Deep mutational scan, measured.
Amino acid sequence: ITGDVSAANKDAIRKQMDAAASKGDVETYRKLKAKLKGIR
Results as ranks from 00 to 15, higher is better:
5 V>G: 12
26 V>Q: 06
26 V>R: 03
13 I>E: 02
18 D>Y: 15
40 R>W: 14
16 Q>L: 13
34 A>N: 09
17 M>I: 03
34 A>V: 07
17 M>A: 02
1 I>H: 11
29 Y>K: 02
24 G>N: 03
15 K>S: 06
39 I>E: 08
18 D>S: 10
12 A>E: 14
17 M>E: 02
23 K>Y: 04
8 A>T: 12
15 K>F: 05
4 D>P: 09
38 G>S: 11
29 Y>S: 01
14 R>E: 07
11 D>L: 08
28 T>K: 06
10 K>P: 09
5 V>R: 09
32 L>P: 01
23 K>A: 13
32 L>V: 00
8 A>D: 13
11 D>H: 07
39 I>R: 03
37 K>L: 12
5 V>T: 11
15 K>T: 06
13 I>W: 04
13 I>S: 00
40 R>G: 14
37 K>D: 15
22 S>H: 07
28 T>Y: 04
20 A>F: 00
2 T>L: 10
38 G>M: 07
32 L>K: 01
33 K>T: 03
27 E>T: 05
1 I>K: 09
25 D>T: 00
10 K>R: 14
12 A>Y: 08
12 A>D: 13
5 V>E: 09
14 R>I: 12
23 K>S: 10
4 D>R: 04
6 S>Y: 08
27 E>R: 07
14 R>G: 03
27 E>Y: 03
24 G>Y: 02
38 G>P: 04
36 L>I: 04
34 A>W: 04
1 I>D: 09
22 S>F: 06
11 D>F: 01
24 G>H: 02
11 D>Q: 10
30 R>L: 14
28 T>V: 05
7 A>V: 10
38 G>V: 07
4 D>W: 04
28 T>A: 10
8 A>Q: 12
40 R>C: 15
24 G>P: 00
10 K>D: 11
15 K>Y: 05
5 V>L: 12
14 R>Y: 09
13 I>T: 03
27 E>P: 02
3 G>I: 10
15 K>G: 04
22 S>M: 13
29 Y>F: 05
15 K>Q: 07
3 G>P: 10
39 I>L: 14
37 K>T: 08
35 K>R: 05
16 Q>I: 03
39 I>W: 07
14 R>S: 06
26 V>K: 08
23 K>Q: 08
9 N>P: 06
28 T>P: 00
13 I>P: 02
25 D>W: 03
34 A>Y: 03
40 R>N: 14
25 D>L: 03
6 S>F: 12
9 N>Y: 15
1 I>V: 11
32 L>S: 00
4 D>G: 09
9 N>M: 15
40 R>A: 13
39 I>K: 05
22 S>P: 00
34 A>R: 10
9 N>A: 13
38 G>W: 09
39 I>P: 05
7 A>M: 14
